[in-house]
């Protein structure tokens, strides 16, 4: 079994981002009256950054446990994804830079109504992706071209398909 948590220093930047968006979006209409269009725009921005701040706080107290049979999330948002019920796996890469550097990845796993999104700052992200890719391979899930390409760049897909871990194989056979 492996445990994965977000390191607090990695989330510090997200707290700053949430504050950097939320403070001006609330301060501008508080200082002087604004029109209906501006109020709607700033209100939307404030809601977005507030949601981002809340999500960051939830992530700080989230712990993901990966076993041979399932992936369990403990913390404020509890969920469980059994590997043999995995319906969808998506690995996306995002970067705000034109040259595509300094980006981050997001792994999305879905099983029935349960969805889990994890980003690459979590401790042991590559192990998490490897386990997910192995489970997806064993389930015969079709991956979209972007996920396949991202897995290939990480050098995970081939390993996952050719040598599924003994632990996961045993779990999948249960």
């Amino acid at each position: 079994m492996t445990r994965h948590t977000y390191p607090v220093p990695a989330l510090f930047g997200d707290y700053l981002r949430a504050a950097a968006g939320l403070i001006p979006a609330v301060a501008v209409p508080a200082i002087a009256p604004v029109g209906i269009f501006e109020a709607t725009l700033l209100g939307g921005v404030a809601l977005l950054f507030a949601a981002f701040g809340i999500r960051t706080a939830l992530r700080q107290f989230t712990c993901i446990e990966v076993t041979a049979a399932a992936l369990r999330v403990s913390g404020a948002l509890r969920t469980k994804i059994s590997w043999d019920e995995l319906d969808r796996m998506r690995l996306a890469y995002y970067s705000t830079r034109r040259d595509g550097r300094d980006g981050w990845m997001q792994l999305e796993l879905r099983s029935g109504w349960s969805t889990l999104r994890v980003d690459s700052r979590i401790i042991g992200f590559s192990e998490l992706v490897t386990s997910s890719a192995q489970a997806a391979a064993m389930r015969g899930l079709q991956l979209d071209p972007a996920t396949s390409a991202n897995l290939q760049v990480l050098g995970i897909e081939r390993r996952a398909v050719m040598a599924p871990s003994r632990e996961l194989a045993a779990g999948g056979a249960e």
Binding site: R17, A18, T96
Partner: peptide, 14 residues
């Protein structure tokens, strides 16, 4: 995706 949107908006302001 939310993180991406937030980062992009923060780039738009400056």
């Amino acid at each position: 995706m939310l993180g991406y949107v937030v980062r992009r908006i923060l780039i738009m302001l400056p």
